[in-house]
Design a protein around this nucleic acid. Structure first.
Lengths: 124, 124
DNA sequence: TCGATATATGCTTATATGCTCATATAATTA
DNA sequence: TAATTATATGAGCATATAAGCATATATCGA
């Protein structure tokens, strides 16, 4: 059985692992999703939107960043379907797309807090 | 009250939002966490490790990638505390660091499936 | 100790990404 | 329509990052 490789006394069936993994495209989409979360500016935007719907100018003011910089990042968030936008007058009002986004955000936050609770480093 | 800005008939209190957001450092850590998830190679590694502990060579074979490429990414995952490593003989056995990692991974997967169910593209 | 095996790490290059500046598009009002 | 306001977008630059190659480190066996 060439699918089982002995490694220091334990057996690992690589084919079983390969077979249990989701299809390549799904994993690509997943990485793309997390990549959208993986930037400080975008995380700040999502954090703000988890508290209130906001227009572009407000987000820019809140983060002390330029309007184009915010618009560029909002586009990334839109393409990743993490936020949705509705025009109201001259403004574009942005909001979290759905509760999944909040859940992923909160789950990540819990992980970070677990690793470094209360600002201290807790490796172990 | 300069903290409330009227926007097309609705009031948004920017200071309230600013006050409700986590400290800058926490948001930076959070982005860093998601950035570690935000690469196809690393997602594949995590997906594999969610099924079984694996040594470096097995991961390289599983993903059809070079050993140094895998080692480089494993280092990123280690630094983000998403995986832990234990030496067993000549091999380094990698595993998911804790259940939080699996939870974040699964939650993201549910989101992706929700957006594009059954492998089809569902772009609104 | 020497050789073989397994993994980790520098260094380098190609590519990706975030931001700025300038400008285009869209919506409101005179 | 023209002017104003709000947002979106394109080009370009500076930086970050993933992977390749070569090599260092570590462990085991003879």
């Amino acid at each position: 059985m060439n699918s089982s490789v002995e490694k220091d006394g334990q057996f690992v069936n690589l084919e079983a692992v390969a077979g249990g993994m989701p299809p390549e495209e799904a994993l690509y989409d997943l990485a793309e999703l997390f990549r959208a979360f993986g930037d400080t500016t975008r995380i700040k935007i999502l954090s703000a939107l988890s508290l209130s719907e906001l227009c572009v100018a407000d987000i820019a003011e809140l983060l002390s960043m330029s309007q184009p910089a915010i618009s560029h990042q909002l586009r990334v968030l839109r393409q990743a379907r993490l936020v949705r936008v509705t025009r109201r007058g001259r403004s574009s009002i942005y909001a979290l797309d759905d509760e999944h986004v909040r859940t992923i955000f909160d789950q990540g936050f819990r992980h970070v807090r677990h690793i470094t609770p209360e600002g201290g480093e807790n490796h172990g």
